[in-house]
């Protein structure tokens, strides 16, 4: 726990100024490929928010209540990934049983999320920055929402791009990266918004 973070400020920082994707480069793989379609972006985005918020809490518990007392912190990489994978697996199973509709909308994205570096990244940042349980949750939730915003914005822009003439070599990944760069630039402008300091 540290004195630096006022929960609401942390929340907004996680979404805007320290956006997990635009400022911390995490979650690019799926971001680049899925942002082609708005519909799938929404599905993936929501799934990411849910998984990020949940796993940051779970991993906090595992790290501070199990790994540290046993002096096994160096195994956190393996343990976090297992927790994430198991959680995703569990959620997928539950959704499949409970709701066909929800499964059709979200369920298929879940396996994709397991290797999304942003999810693991959130847990690792939590450890490095020594967040409390509440802070981890807020950070996870905020980061998820931030990622969601980024992918939605990108999907929207790419829709418009379909009518633009793009230099041959930039098609696909190239132009997407440039737009990501511009979005990152724009998000940096949010810095002045926050009340602290």
């Amino acid at each position: 726990m540290n004195s630096a973070t006022i929960p609401i400020a942390l929340f907004f920082a996680a979404i805007f100024t320290n956006n997990i994707l635009l400022a911390n480069y995490l979650g690019m793989c799926s971001f680049l490929s899925v942002s082609r379609e708005i519909k799938t972006s929404v599905g993936l985005g929501v799934a990411v928010i849910f998984v990020m918020a949940s796993t940051s809490m779970l991993n906090w518990i595992v790290y501070y209540k199990i790994l540290i007392p046993l002096e096994l912190e160096y195994l956190r990489f393996i343990v976090f990934i297992i927790v994430i994978a198991a959680f995703v697996q569990l959620v997928e199973m539950i959704i499949e049983r409970v709701s066909e509709v929800l499964y059709a909308a979200l369920g298929i994205f879940l396996p994709l999320i397991t290797v999304n570096c942003a999810i693991l990244g959130v847990s690792l940042f939590m450890v490095i920055r020594e967040y409390s349980f509440l802070e981890s949750f807020i950070f996870g939730l905020g980061s998820g929402i931030g990622w969601f915003l980024a992918i939605m914005a990108m999907a929207g822009i790419r829709q418009k791009l379909k009518r633009a003439r793009i230099p041959h070599g930039l098609e696909g990944a190239g132009i997407t990266l440039i737009i990501t760069g511009m979005m990152a630039l724009a998000f940096m402008g949010f810095s002045g918004m926050l009340p602290i300091g």
């Binding site: 635009l22 400022a23 911390n24 480069y25 230099p167 041959h168 070599g169 930039l170 990944a173 190239g174 132009i175 990266l177 440039i178 990501t180 760069g181 511009m182 990152a184 630039l185 940096m188």
Partner: peptide, 25 residues
Amino acid sequence: SIMIMPPGAFFMLAIFIWIVKGVLM
């Protein structure tokens, strides 16, 4: 300064891809 910040990284990678793809094509 932009180069040490995230946008710089994204732009550089995009440019790199552009150049390489251009050569390959």
